[in-house]
Design a protein around this nucleic acid. Structure first.
Lengths: 231, 231
DNA sequence: AACATCATTATCCACTTGGATAGCGACAAT
DNA sequence: ATTGTCGCTATCCAAGTGGATAATGATGTT
């Protein structure tokens, strides 16, 4: 196959819509062909998330990612073009899944009391962090790495999330419901309090023998965050 | 050189005492020969810390580590025997340096009021985390990785640190000075509150444009931790 | 001055890495 | 039934990996 055609083809595959989480398998009934591709894409994304989160970008091998996904490593290049692009798609997938798992009551704070809403959000976010500890792990890897990838992620996903939370935090500070300290510090403390215990779960298991993913432990941790920050 | 002799030699080099931080270049005046070796060891350790912290264990390359340290990669094998052993030495180096930077008033809580001591500890620990953000980064990499390396680190360094802090935390909880929540949750929240903002400094820079290492920002963050946890 | 030590390197090795290319072969369209 | 599409793989490649070996040459010892 001539080079030009091959490149064009790869671009087309890449442009194809990535598997959407919530979408109810739209229309008619997708041709088996397309459905299979979507399954493969999803398998690769989940495998890549797991490997990237644990080993970092350079430490993860596309061959291992492919093996976990049940395909040959050529498939990754076929679909995503490069390891860099796969990394970006994984981060996109991560936030899409997060949004998809967010219940309406958390997405939309309207007409809810600030404290009630904050508690709902914390409860949901801790559950999410316990369900998907690799989210926090990947974001830590991303943030440590610096470079243009981080700029891109900040621009694309992280900044909007920060800005979305800041007004509510400041309102609650003003009303005396959260400690009256620097907003960025406070946001990071709350965020870390919610997810780091799950990111570092293997350490806690090794040191204290505790399984932080036990539902009762999760409930205790939710309470700990409430009591610590809320006033 | 026969194999047996080479192995014996490497073991001897490895067994030689690693550079101690506080030690005042003891006795007489070390022969230039030994001094140079110590310098090289230190350069490799610091370079390795930086690379491991950012890229993780598998992601860091011994050749790049050596280059940053100004030597050829054979030197690493000569001194440390293997990449695994280098990783372990780096972690040992990290905690040794941490202990060396700990002032007496933080090492020894005797005869100090709990609150006063806790504030001194937090202030020192935040300063340390800001001075050496790679400490937190490496420990996150270590904890995420699981496997026997984590067991070793937990046994060797982490557990004793946890156990050392727990009694004071429980006493302060009992006296109403810290939120009355699960001790492990509380310890992790305090720990994360102190160091994660520096571990994730590149993210904050990219998202909010803030330099968390600015001394005034550090002071604000210390205050934030005080106000949030202390009561 | 001659010798021995040893910090350091050059160089080789088998293996893995991300990427590129050229298919194959099950499906879909006619 | 024939043909073309395209999901997927086999296979090659240059570059990089951690490790092993033997040498070098400045330093220290006699």
């Amino acid at each position: 196959m001539p080079v030009a055609k091959a490149v064009k083809k790869a671009a087309a595959v890449r442009a194809a819509k990535r598997p959407r989480i919530g979408e109810p398998t739209a229309k008619k009934a997708a041709p088996a062909r397309a459905q299979k591709l979507q399954n493969t894409r999803l398998a690769i994304l989940e495998s890549a998330l797991s490997h990237f989160a644990r080993r970092g970008f350079q430490g993860a091998s596309t061959r291992e990612i492919a093996q976990t996904a049940g395909v040959r490593h050529g498939m990754i290049r076929h679909i995503y073009g490069s390891k860099d692009e796969l990394w970006r798609e994984v981060i996109g997938f991560l936030f899409e899944r997060m949004n998809a798992e967010m219940p309406a009551v958390v997405v939309n704070p309207e007409n809810q009391d600030d404290i009630v809403y904050w508690k709902k959000w914390v409860r949901w976010y801790i559950g999410y962090s316990a369900r998907h500890p690799d989210h926090g792990r990947l974001m830590v890897q991303q943030s440590i790495l610096q470079g243009p990838q981080l700029e891109w992620a900040a621009e694309q996903f992280i900044r909007s999330r920060h800005l979305w939370h800041f007004p509510a935090i400041e309102r609650m500070k003003a009303n005396g419901h959260l400690p009256d300290v620097d907003t960025v510090s406070l946001f990071f403390m709350i965020n870390a309090a919610c997810q780091m215990i799950y990111v570092l779960a293997p350490e806690i298991k090794a040191v204290d023998g505790r399984d932080v993913f036990d539902p009762r432990e999760i409930e205790k941790h939710i309470d700990a965050v409430f009591v610590t920050f809320l006033r």
